[in-house]
Nucleic acid binder design. Structure first.
Lengths: 193, 193
DNA sequence: TTCATTTCTTAACTTAAGTGAACGAATTTA
DNA sequence: TAAATTCGTTCACTTAAGTTAAGAAATGAA
C-alpha cells in the first residue's frame, strides 16, 4: 500500500531511503470505514487527504441540505496545504466507500518541508497541476448544461456513476436528485429514437 | 507602475536589487488597448498575465458563441505556469478595458526559476493560494442558483458589474444575457415589495 | 428475517432559464 | 455626422429544473 504513495511521489521528485523513512515515520496511513466523517464543518485544523483506495467526498450543508461538490478516488489528493492555514472548515469530508488514505496535518507538512525542501517544491508543482486541471473543470461546468455535464462525466469518470449514490452525484452536477432521474430518462428516450 | 508588481511580489518573497533588475530586464510590461486579443484558441505558447491596471477576460467560443469564464482585474494573475507547458490554448484572452499588464512566456519563467529558485517557490505558494480560492469559487458556483450567484457577485466584486458588458457577465454567471436582464428585473421587483 | 430508514424514480405542478424576435440605445466605423 | 453594428431589454413561447408528494426498491439495524 505504501508503494502507491511512493509511486505517486516519484512522478514529481525522487526520494532517498531516508526521506521515505521520514515519511513513513509520520504514520500517515489510515483505513476508514464507509460513512466515516473525516472532517466536520467548523472544525479547526485542515488536513490533507490522499486516497490510496476507495472514495471520499466533500460536501456542504446549506439550509439543512447536503451539497456535494467533489469526489476523490484512487491517486487523487485533496488540497495540498503545504502552508499552514488555520481557518475553520466550511465543509464536511466523508467516506463513500471503505477507504485507505493518508492523512497529513499542517504540522507534518511544516516539519517535512523544513527537513526536506523538495517536498515543498513538489507541493508547489502539484498545486500548479491541480490548479490548471481545476480551471478546466470549472470552465467546463460553467459552459455546460446539466445534461452535457452528465454526459461528460459518463465519458471522463464512468466509475463515479457506478460507485456513488445518485443523490450525491446530482448535487455534484449542480441539480436535484429528481432532475437527475428525469435527465437520465430523457437521454434514454432520445437514444431509442 | 513597476512598484505595483514589486509590492505584489513582496507579499510572498523579498527581492534584492539584483533580482528586481533581472525581472525588469525581461521587459515584461505591456500596455494594451481595449479589445486587443492577447491569446487565441489554438495558439501554442501559454503566457502568464498579471494585471496591473485594467481588466482582461478569458472566454471560449463554443458553437460560435462566446462563453466567458473569468475576469482578471488589478493585482490578479492568470495561471502561474512556472512549469513549461506546450499545450494549445482552448480559450481566448482579450482586454475588456485599456490595460497595463505583465506578460511572461514560459522561457522567461524557466530562466528566472533557474537563476532565482525563490521565484519558483513563490509560484508554488501562489498556486496553492489560487487553488484554495478557486475551489471556494467553484463550490459556491455549484451550490448556488444564477440569482444567488448574481447577488454574491454584487457583494464580492461590485466593480465587475459596472465595468464589464452585461452579455459577458451573463455567461460568466452561467446564463444567457436575456436571463440576466430578467433576473435583475425580478430582483428589483422583489426589493420594491 | 423483519422493520425502519434511506434512496431512487415517477408524476403533476410551479418557477426560471433558453429561444427567437423586436426595438431603442449605445457604440463603432466609414 | 450618418450609417451600421453591437448591446441591453422586453415579450411570448418552449424547455428544463425545482418542488411536493407518493410509492417501490435497496439498505441497514434490531
Amino acid at each position: 500500500m505504501h508503494d502507491i504513495l511512493f509511486d505517486f511521489i516519484s512522478k514529481y521528485i525522487s526520494l532517498t531511503e531516508d526521506e521515505k523513512n521520514a515519511l513513513l515515520s509520520l504514520d500517515l496511513f489510515r483505513s476508514v470505514k464507509k460513512g466515516t466523517i473525516l472532517l466536520k464543518e467548523g472544525q479547526k485544523s485542515q488536513y490533507d487527504y490522499f486516497v490510496l483506495k476507495g472514495c471520499i467526498r466533500k460536501y456542504y450543508i446549506i439550509d439543512g441540505e447536503e451539497k456535494t461538490t467533489a469526489f476523490f478516488t484512487e491517486m487523487e489528493g485533496m488540497t495540498p496545504h503545504c502552508v499552514k492555514n488555520n481557518n475553520k472548515s466550511e465543509y464536511f469530508v466523508s467516506c463513500v466507500e471503505d477507504t485507505i488514505l493518508t492523512v497529513a496535518n499542517p504540522d507534518m507538512g511544516v516539519e517535512l518541508n523544513t527537513k526536506f525542501p523538495k517536498f515543498q517544491l513538489m507541493c508547489g508543482v502539484l498545486s500548479e497541476e491541480l490548479l490548471a486541471k481545476q480551471q478546466i473543470d470549472f470552465d467546463d461546468f460553467k459552459t455546460s448544461s446539466p445534461e452535457i455535464r452528465y454526459l461528460n462525466l459518463l465519458q471522463l469518470r464512468p466509475d463515479l456513476i457506478q460507485r456513488v449514490p445518485q443523490h450525491q452525484l446530482a448535487s455534484f452536477l449542480g441539480i436535484k436528485p429528481q432532475s437527475l432521474s428525469r435527465l437520465r430518462a430523457r437521454i434514454l428516450e432520445k437514444s431509442k429514437e
